[in-house]
């Protein structure tokens, strides 16, 4: 082998990072994953803007197993980290985290759920 390569390799030294022993955070502005803040979400007021812009249906309205209530679900498994929901949300309830560590232990861990409070009238009907 051409000796120059050896020299070149030696001069370059180690360029791989010691991640995960030491953190190697992505740069600012990196689109890691969307995060949903239930406190700021206005789904109760009928807002479904994010559900409408999400192409892979990672944000969706679901019926709770009791068959009555509904909830907003952000599911990171189908999410493609496009950030369209963040741009569209009128209340700032969604934002993009620059975090690149996306592994979860179970599919449920990848979900954020905002329950939808139903107005219940005095006779018990919704």
């Amino acid at each position: 082998m051409e000796l120059g390569w050896l020299l070149r390799g030696w001069r370059t030294g180690i360029v791989t990072t010691p991640y995960p022993t030491r953190p190697d955070p992505p740069p600012q502005g990196f689109r890691g994953r969307p995060q949903l803040d239930g406190e700021r979400c206005r789904i109760d007021d009928g807002c479904t803007v994010c559900v409408e812009v999400c192409l892979p249906r990672a944000l969706r309205l679901e019926t709770v197993p009791n068959g009555l209530d509904r909830r907003l679900v952000l599911d990171l498994l189908p999410c493609i980290m496009c950030g369209l929901c963040v741009q569209a949300c009128p209340t700032g309830a969604l934002h993009m985290q620059s975090d690149g560590e996306l592994a979860v232990r179970s599919p449920q861990d990848a979900q954020t759920i905002v329950p939808l409070e139903m107005e219940v009238s005095s006779d018990g009907h919704i």
Partner: peptide, 23 residues
């Protein structure tokens, strides 16, 4: 070694992309 060297150049650009475009 050639492979590693060109991959270093490539990786630097991918990191630059991440900084400029968020991806």
């Amino acid at each position: 070694v050639g492979q590693a060297q060109f991959d270093v150049l490539k990786e630097r650009l991918l990191r630059l992309n991440a900084r400029l475009a968020g991806h």
